[in-house]
Design a protein around this nucleic acid. Structure first.
Lengths: 266, 266
DNA sequence: CAGTGGTCTAGACCACCTT
DNA sequence: AGGTGGTCTAGACCACTGA
């Protein structure tokens, strides 16, 4: 039995999906919803706040909430795990292992993945396939505590994240850095694209509820394979844009001319 | 005088920044904070919920919140406007106008930008510069109501968004679609990169508080110019990953082989 | 088992939007 | 001016964490 406000949020979400509250229409007032569901206004507010963060409704003080859309939302787990995501989308995921090694974090890892120097990790590199087609190359560093669990797994199918979750590890929070890179020779070969072609790179640090980092990963997708979507709002912004020329007053020498050079071996 | 919970959130945020609550340490309990600030527990909860959405602290029922980091957060406006963002980062933004035209939305716009067919819009294309270096090519469709305002502006410097805000238009909500594309001939020329090199594409639909779309835009960044960051958590996920092969049970014919072809004229 | 966060209630006052 | 959301209070009970 989940919390009442979650039930109410679900009911409202479904009602929006069913077209009972078309896009552009107004939601009933908080008081009216409270009466309808037989709860206090505070509970209704928890429910609509959730819908607001999901991007389903907007807020304007003094006016009723407006329905802005029925947005497909993916769970944190589906965003975290390629396998779980693929399955939820109706695709068949698989993997091919390229490299598997327990070692210590090097300077290159620090720069690329923000991992802490010297820590013992499991370095796993795989090609990920969607319905048999290679769409992504990933490198994941698993924290030492996870290493033995991961090493004991079948790594070519199923979700590592899901099995770690079953073992009691909880993923709670993730930081993503998204940019574009050119395919190096190795990546081009693995993904079946031309060298130098565009890849979407998603680097991620995932932490447990207590803030301990569990994974550092670097995923590179074929440009035609996936799109990442994000919603933000005035009351809710987890998005930021970082300048590669350095934030702050940095006045580096501009580096014009061609870029697009390969990033080398993955 | 802002709301009490916002003040408390700011104070706690500052305390984290100052290192009073180091990363990995525990926040005082809600009850203790309520006593310290002389407010009800509910008010404290509003404050810490905000910090949690910002990614500063985590939540675990039954245990105190853990500090996970002092995260630089950008405002919604800074994420929305290239100019405002650049200035906030200590850079000098500018622009060069490529194209300016009032017209109706075509089928190509619908596909590329999700704009509604037939609506009258202002189509503005510019190159954006950071400290004099071209880093991004943008195409923005402004909704009809904004067109005359934008047409009356100086378009090579300053923030269009900022001036529209001053005119009373409120940006409240945005949907972003992020992927990678290869530079076409035109883009390569404008950005000073090689044809076919990787660009980070951010497509965005921005709406007012009442859910009316104000802008549709397509920004393409030099791969070495910017990185987009997003945070998400179990309790908060506005991120999703879309398959280009279509969601749902779609079983399209796999299209292997080289991609990375140019997307043509921008 | 004590401490702590998660949920919920009932009521209050204010700021803002709409008419 | 009336409706509505934004904020805040004071208290309650439950579920979970950790010693």
């Amino acid at each position: 039995m989940s919390a009442r406000y979650l039930q109410i949020a679900s009911e409202l979400r479904l009602a929006v999906d069913r077209g009972e509250y078309p896009i552009g229409s107004l939601l009933p007032s908080e008081g009216e919803l409270a009466a309808r569901y037989g709860v206090a206004r505070g509970t209704v507010r928890q429910a609509v706040a959730l819908l607001e963060r999901e991007g389903v409704v907007t807020h304007r003080q003094g006016a009723r909430r407006t329905v802005v859309g029925a947005v497909p939302t993916q769970s944190f787990a589906e965003m975290q795990s390629f396998s779980m995501w693929a399955v939820s989308q109706g695709h068949v995921p698989s993997a091919r292992v390229l490299h598997k090694e327990v070692r210590r974090v090097t300077g290159a890892d620090v720069e690329r993945l923000n991992a802490p120097l010297g820590e013992e990790v499991l370095d796993l590199r795989r090609v990920r396939l969607l319905d048999g087609v290679a769409v992504m190359v990933e490198r994941t560093l698993y924290a030492g505590i996870l290493a033995e669990h991961v090493l004991a797994m079948e790594l070519t199918e199923g979700s590592i994240t899901e099995r770690l979750t079953e073992s009691g590890f909880v993923y709670a929070h993730a930081d993503h850095r998204i940019d574009a890179v050119s395919a190096g020779v190795v990546e081009a070969e693995l993904l079946g694209v031309r060298r130098g072609s565009a890849l979407l790179r998603q680097r991620r640090v995932t932490t447990s509820p207590s803030g301990v980092a569990l994974e550092w990963s670097d995923d590179r997708y074929r440009a035609d394979a996936v799109t990442i979507t994000v919603r933000n709002s005035m009351s809710e912004n987890t998005l930021a844009r970082l300048s590669a020329r350095g934030p702050g007053r940095a006045r580096q020498v501009a580096r014009p001319g061609p870029v697009g050079s390969s990033v080398g071996v993955f």
